[in-house]
Simulated assay, not measured.
Amino acid sequence: MKKNFQLLLPLAWTFCFSYFFILMINITWQYISFHTDAAFLQIKQTEVDKIPFYIPFFYAHVYSAIFVLLAGFFQLNTTLLKNFPLAHRNIGKFYVFTVLLLSAPSGLFIGLFANGGFYSKISFVSLSVLWFYFTLKGFTAIKNKNITKHKSFMLRSFALTFSAITLRFWKVILVYLFHPAPMDLYQIIAWLGWIPNLLIVEYYLYNQLKK
């Protein structure tokens, strides 16, 4: 029974990730025109008009995040690590440098102007800072040959990367069940999108230490 569960878990994870990743592609595709009023940007016209560089940072975040998600997913594949270590290293380098140079800095910038007021801004800024920190620590750990520390911090990093999906998942659930006011919704999902992810990873790491 336990063996069957262990076999099914990776399949279930792959299926779920693929489904939500396709949804993310559909969301990202709305911005392919690079119009300043596409999709979500329709309610961000104040920032678009008055904040210098908001659009470049926004698009840098939107388009880099989709590739980081995919790269992070493959990095969790133990088969890739065992059989194709060079591919694992190269994908990992792409993941790290894209997060550090594009995704996290751009997320920090647009987070300063997040909907939902002060509490939402604090959440998205914290998310971006931790994302940068965990990714950098994971990278420096493997440079120092500390594989255990590397795995721990990269799992934390991907937990925050995955918030791009979980944030939207929680948004759909909350709107369907409770119909909150838009600003209340932003404040809730700003935190709900990444805190549970990180707690799950920390619980997993804690259990690994006990073994």
Rank of each mutant, 00 (worst) to 15 (best):
K3Q: 13
L101K: 06
F15M: 08
T46L: 11
Y176I: 06
N115R: 11
I173C: 03
I110Q: 11
D37M: 02
A65G: 13
Y176T: 14
K2P: 02
Q30G: 13
Q45R: 09
A38S: 15
V172R: 01
A181K: 11
T14Y: 05
T36V: 10
I91H: 02
S128I: 05
S106I: 01
I91T: 03
I165H: 01
L86C: 01
K2R: 12
L112R: 12
F134M: 09
S18N: 05
P56I: 11
F124W: 12
K137L: 08
A114G: 07
T46V: 13
G193F: 05
A104C: 10
Y204Q: 00
A159V: 01
G193Y: 00
D184Y: 04
H150E: 10
I195M: 04
P180K: 02
D184S: 14
N115Y: 07
M154E: 06
L155M: 15
C16H: 03
M1L: 03
W191H: 11
Y31G: 07
V175S: 04
M183A: 13
F124I: 08
W29H: 12
A87E: 06
V68T: 12
P196C: 03
I189S: 03
K121T: 13
I66P: 03
F74E: 01
F15L: 14
M1P: 05
Y186D: 15
Y204V: 08
P85A: 10
A114F: 01
L7Y: 14
Q42I: 13
Y206V: 01
F132Y: 11
A60M: 14
N144Q: 15
N146A: 13
S126W: 04
W170A: 05
F21M: 04
S64P: 06
L198H: 05
S103M: 14
I142R: 11
L205D: 09
A39D: 10
Q208R: 15
Y206A: 13
P10G: 03
L177P: 00
K143A: 02
Y119W: 15
I147C: 04
V48A: 06
I189E: 04
K145D: 14
Y203T: 14
L199Y: 01
A164H: 04
A190M: 05
N115W: 07
F34L: 15
L41K: 09
H88M: 04
L198I: 11
T98I: 02
F84D: 09
Y119Q: 10
Q30K: 15
L86P: 03
F118A: 07
G92E: 04
F57Y: 06
A159T: 07
T166I: 07
L155F: 13
Y186E: 15
L9V: 13
M183Y: 07
T28F: 00
I32R: 15
N144D: 14
L192C: 07
K44M: 10
K82M: 10
L108F: 15
E202P: 12
C16V: 12
W194Q: 03
I189M: 06
V99G: 01
E202W: 08
F118D: 01
K44C: 04
F40W: 12
A190V: 11
Y54D: 06
Y186K: 13
V125G: 09
P10K: 04
Y59A: 03
S123Y: 05
N4A: 14
I91Q: 00
L185G: 00
N77V: 10
L100I: 06
K44L: 13
A12N: 10
